[in-house]
């Protein structure tokens, strides 16, 4: 049994839902993200939010998977501050949907001033409505700098770091994220971010407190079964079943339950 706490099912097929259910997936959370192209208007985001709060939960339910979501305009589309503010204004009308856990995945992409401005406005929205936050950290060479800028921004708003998950950590960011009291997510990708082997190495080095794994599967090279594959890697090394369950079920369950809206349906 497992939870995949970060996956973009709008880009995946129904066969993926079936395979995930067979592999033991009981619940997922789907942050709003970049569609691979820039949307031309705020209305495009409204339709996307309807997909996330209405269509996907029904598609997931067919396979016994509970679907939850996080709303935002992602940092890749935050250079246009005018559009970002229009989208931010639409978010409150979706906050009472039963599967909305909070604001995400917000953060930075190229660590630009406009991205940082829009990040601050998202954090303020979360603070105003007492919502949890899921954070996307930048790619590759931009990750270390961006992770620090994001953590500083969140601290400025006085948000409890125990209600914020900083995602896509790797060996050079995980220690600092955990030391500062945040939760950390490791994304299991074939070429970038973490492989299942490196994720298990990180558990062995940093322990399993406030740390989870996810597939972040989307329209790019990614694997919707990455979490069960990482479970296999742990078992193959001889880790106890209790540790496997902690990182792939209990930790996401504990963090997400703070929203008051998370359920595995069991």
């Amino acid at each position: 049994m497992y939870i995949d706490p970060h996956i973009h099912m709008v880009s995946r097929t129904t066969d993926d839902y079936r395979a995930m259910a067979l592999a033991g997936c009981v619940a997922i959370t789907e942050p709003a993200f970049w569609a691979g192209y820039d949307r031309s208007s705020a209305q495009g985001f409204v339709d996307y939010f309807r997909l996330l709060t209405d269509t996907e939960p029904r598609r997931a339910a067919q396979f016994g998977i509970r679907h939850h979501t996080w709303l935002c305009i992602n940092p890749k589309e935050s250079e246009d501050i005018g559009l970002a503010r229009e989208v931010l204004a639409e978010i409150p009308s979706f906050l009472d949907r039963p599967n909305v856990l909070g604001i995400g995945e917000i953060g930075l992409n190229k660590n630009s001033r406009n991205e940082l401005t829009v990040l601050h406005e998202h954090i303020a929205l979360a603070a105003k409505h007492q919502l949890m936050i899921l954070v996307h950290t930048p790619h590759l060479e931009d990750k270390l700098k961006g992770t620090r800028l994001i953590m500083d921004a969140i601290r400025e708003h006085g948000i409890d770091p125990g209600r914020v998950l900083i995602d896509h950590v790797e060996e050079h960011t995980v220690g600092e994220v955990l030391r500062r009291g945040f939760w950390a997510g490791m994304t299991l990708y074939p070429d970038t971010k973490c492989t299942p082997q490196r994720a298990v190495d990180i558990f062995e080095m940093h322990g399993t407190e406030r740390l989870w794994i996810n597939s972040a599967a989307d329209w790019g090279v990614s694997d919707p079964l990455a979490v069960p594959k990482c479970q296999q890697e742990m078992r193959g090394r001889g880790h106890l079943e209790a540790a496997v369950r902690k990182v792939s079920f209990e930790n996401p369950f504990r963090f997400l339950s703070q929203s008051g809206r998370f359920s595995t349906g069991r």
Binding site: W34, N109, N114, E141, R148
Partner: peptide, 17 residues
């Protein structure tokens, strides 16, 4: 391999890294 600067850049030159 990381960018060790600490200030935000003026404008994102591209989306990728």
């Amino acid at each position: 391999w990381s960018d060790h600067s600490t200030e935000p850049i003026d404008r994102a030159p591209m989306k990728g890294a």
